[in-house]
Write a protein that binds this DNA or RNA. Structure first.
Lengths: 208, 208
DNA sequence: ACCTGAACACCGTTCAAGT
DNA sequence: ACCTGAACACCGTTCAAGT
């Protein structure tokens, strides 16, 4: 019984039984121990879930440094999203607070490094990176909740148009990400028209 | 005892005692009734909180149609954020799910109308508006949680720089919002350099 | 000193019993 | 038919009692 063993078992339990199984009592039952035994390795439930989240985030590969800065940012954020969605038990927690364990910090450094390389003013790098992280967290949250699709959003979509663009979809997520990256490009090099806009997005939308 | 009375009392209770007071039992005690009495007016706790959220959002004024589209979007989103932060009991719920009661739908229509006016392709209007709403929700969540400041973020800030830009701050929020609006501008009129970038942001950051 | 599990102070919601 | 409150099936965490 080490923190790593507990975290790994909790991740697996969440994969099998979903977020409803992530209670101290259910986790302890799964481990075959008393709920209080967990408190000997983690100060509280939140700390345990942080460790589990970092475990999921460890699956994300650090993109190669030769790639262009925007592709690196896009890769990290879409990969974190995909990794979180592979682990339904912990996805909601990842969406709620940015995972800043060792794996999370490594990825955060990739983003700030890429933004500095993009030509953003030093004082803006952290603000832009937090904007990207915030947007990604919200996009993930929408995807998580789309599992139980929201009646109210359906009504709004219906009121506006027939063809629903699916609220928490990957396409929706990447669209907003491109808006942010375009905005960052403009911030870094005002006046220059963005020649690469959309170059790395999955779909070509120039003829919609 | 009508739904409106219950929602108003719950909003006031949350203003006074914070999110911890927003349980069916505490709300009922505040109203001087049995917890079950509330279920006669709302199907469940979530529906009640949705009504309370809409009450808070009703405080946001619909911006004048003569204003430029980006200023209208900026006004709505910063005003919703401010309204939510004036009501600590319900702010977390507003951050978790976009309020789509009658007041929320009215504001959502302002945003989609503004984006259509901006020149965005019809198919992109809803995607961009969802990106804006998602970002705003995440920014609000960070502000709410910044009330109990996050030790982990403090470490990251410290590791990167000395001068902490405050995670959930209004300045941070507006910066990300400008990135998104700039991205939308570029999406609507590719090739045109954005001459109005930052024109409506609170601070002039051209000489940092 | 270490570990356990009973207990505390809560939840949202159901449902049977009262009026 | 309407309303109440006891009860159900949970929570995270504390803490006293055991080993």
């Amino acid at each position: 019984m080490t923190p790593a063993v507990i975290a790994a078992a909790t991740l697996a339990l969440g994969d099998r039984e979903g977020p409803g199984a992530m209670s101290m009592r259910r986790i302890a039952a799964d481990l075959g121990c008393d709920p209080m035994a967990i408190y000997r390795h983690f100060p509280n439930r939140q700390a345990l879930l942080d460790a589990v989240a970092d475990l999921a985030v460890q699956e994300v590969a650090v993109p190669a440094g030769e790639k262009p800065w925007d592709e690196r940012v896009r890769a990290v954020l879409t990969d974190v999203r995909a990794a979180a969605l592979r682990h339904p038990g912990i996805a909601g927690h990842i969406a709620s607070r940015p995972p800043l364990g060792s794996a999370g910090q490594k990825l955060a450094a990739v983003i700030t490094g890429a933004l500095a390389e993009a030509g953003l003013a030093p004082g803006d790098v952290l603000k832009a990176s937090q904007a990207l992280v915030a947007y990604s967290a919200a996009g993930l949250r929408m995807a998580v909740e789309a599992g139980a699709p929201d009646e109210r959003w359906r009504q709004v979509n219906e009121a506006l148009e027939g063809e629903t663009p699916v609220v928490g979809s990957a396409e929706q997520f990447e669209y907003g990400l491109r808006l942010l990256l375009n905005g960052i490009r403009l911030e870094a090099h005002p006046g220059e028209a963005s020649r690469t806009a959309g170059a790395y997005s999955g779909q070509d939308r120039s003829c919609s």
